[in-house]
Amino acid sequence: MSYKNVKKWDSLNHVSLILAIESKFSIKIKPEASIDLTSYKKILNFIKNFKG
C-alpha cells in the first residue's frame, strides 16, 4: 500500500497521516523524514526503528 495505489493519499492527506502517526505513537517526525514515508511498509519500518 503506497501513495501510488491509494487514491485519497494526496499531499494534504499525507500531512494528516503524519500528524496522526505522531500523536498515536507520541513521536515527533522531522519534516525531511516525513516526505519519505510514502508507503505502509516504509512507515512500519520507520516506527519500528524509532521505538526500537
Binding site: S16, A20, E22, S23
Partner: peptide, 8 residues
C-alpha cells in the same frame, strides 16, 4: 484530544 483519536 490527540489527532489520531479524532480520526478514530
Amino acid at each position: 484530544t490527540p489527532y489520531h483519536k479524532i480520526l478514530e
